[in-house]
Amino acid sequence: MILRDIVTQLDLQVLAGEGALDQEVTGGYIADLLSCVMAGAQPGQLWFTLQTHLNIVAVASLVGVAAIVITEAAAVGPETINRAAGEGVVLLRSAEPTFETVMKLARLL
């Protein structure tokens, strides 16, 4: 499925990376411990997390995930958004908690 379609269907807010929404999404990964994401997430996946520290951009870039999806409308600082924009990392935000967001995605796949 194409990332842009997921953004529309799940009503996600695009915080950064507007120019990189036409990529294929291969699956998903859920974790708030970044060491787990580094070890377990795969390129092309959507990474769902509540963690908003600046390091999420570095980890997303390292793994090559399709996008970070911040859930539960968690507040994201300008440093994180600017870094994501600078590194071409797609940063999305869902108003709903992780479970509901992922359930919606599962119905689309």
Partner: peptide, 16 residues
């Protein structure tokens, strides 16, 4: 430490 330890939670030492 995987939990509550900076490297476990944030993966990398934050440069800033």
């Amino acid at each position: 430490r995987p939990m509550k330890g900076l490297l476990g939670v944030l993966g990398l030492w934050p440069a800033q």
